[in-house]
Design a protein around this nucleic acid. Structure first.
Lengths: 221, 221
DNA sequence: ACCTGAACACCGTTCAAGT
DNA sequence: ACCTGAACACCGTTCAAGT
């Protein structure tokens, strides 16, 4: 589970949600990691409503006071947790994009769906818990930063396609990204069975391909 | 704003979230409406975090004690609010389905996207607030009931298409519904500009059409 | 049948005191 | 440089008393 979250701290956070101090000694870095770990566990066990500072403190083995040295309030803690998660997700997407530079467009789309899908489904419980927790925050800045970063990577990738030259890679990317990420989220919300989810993944790919073929076809006319 | 919410009480609610008593006298019905109205307003002004029972009570002009006569806890209140909203949304989709019985498949898809899109965007602030509030609940039952009801209507509609006979209307519906609703939600999360959102709506329609054409084409081979 | 609001348990947050 | 935990303000929820 720790592998899902890495420790880069990107900073799109509004000041009220920013981490209070950056851990400098190894002792305090361990403290912060313990707090994050405890937060996920409490979130999984008791849900967003049962996520109390006391419970996180007890589970992480530090006092509430210590928590408040690193996070100015409870929201900031949840915010930072999502920040870590999105950061690692963005890295994975960027890696996929790097690998597929110059590939045929269809393979890029397939790879993007695959990476995103896998990242979200490999720990479905965590994905669900984080989807819920982030909804409570003033999350615009967080999600915009994530979207901007990931969009940059995927747009570049699409623009490098070996078989098609997109007239407007940015807009094509916006359509594909919104549809793909939105669909994946809705699959979670509907709680689809593994079989249905898998079929939907394939159909999503087919839809994206059909859309891309339509784009080329329209250009040739 | 009241028109967005009607007062049918469907009941997919787990017992812990069920409304405590049904209003029978006109006085109490007015009370419940006032509570709902106040809840939306507090939600819009102060967000999910600032939604306190005291604030809702003051704004609605009733005491906390009265609120607790109708809703066993704060979650139940938010749950009921979402229930009302989803109920009215389902009604609108059912109406669209009824109108398009026997129409060509492409027009059905267009109409479905249109209805859903319009319902979500006409009061974007409320949509956003409710998306956030529902994420906090144990919302599986609520969303499943909504999905089941709406899926039934749209599946029937698709099965009645005049130009195409679907081999598996249920699965086609699942794909289209998940992609459409998911995409609309993601448009909100990304906070797209009106222009971008409008373009995405069109592209979503194109993607769905391309997918349907692919279905027919594959059958002919 | 419906409403009130003081009272209680618990949670978020602080801060003086510790190592 | 980092940690502790009692103390305080405030919120969710109840219930005895009212109309």
């Amino acid at each position: 589970m720790p592998q899902l979250l890495n420790s880069h701290m990107t900073s799109a956070a509004p000041s009220a949600l920013k981490a209070r101090k950056t851990p400098v000694q190894s002792r305090s870095r361990a403290t912060v990691d313990a707090i994050f770990e405890a937060t996920i566990q409490v979130l999984l066990r008791d849900g967003m409503n049962g996520l109390t500072t006391t419970r996180v403190a007890v589970r992480s083995g530090v006092s509430v006071g210590t928590m408040y040295q690193y996070f100015p309030n409870k929201q900031a803690l949840v915010y930072a947790l999502n920040e870590r998660y999105l950061d690692s997700l963005a890295e994975r997407i960027e890696a996929t994009c790097a690998v597929h530079e110059g590939a045929p467009l269809a393979r890029m789309v397939e790879a993007l769906i695959d990476t995103y899908w896998r990242a979200k489904t490999e720990r479905a419980d965590i994905t669900r818990a984080l989807y819920r927790s982030v909804a409570e925050l003033n999350n615009d800045a967080l999600l915009h930063a994530f979207a901007a970063r990931v969009d940059a990577a995927t747009t570049d990738m699409f623009a490098s396609a070996s078989d098609v030259t997109l007239t407007d890679a940015k807009k094509t990317n916006l359509t594909l990204a919104t549809v793909i990420y939105g669909t994946v989220r809705n699959v979670f919300e509907r709680g689809l069975s593994k079989g249905d989810a898998e079929e939907l993944r394939r159909n999503l790919a087919v839809m994206c391909q059909a859309y891309l073929e339509g784009l080329s076809a329209r250009r040739q006319e």
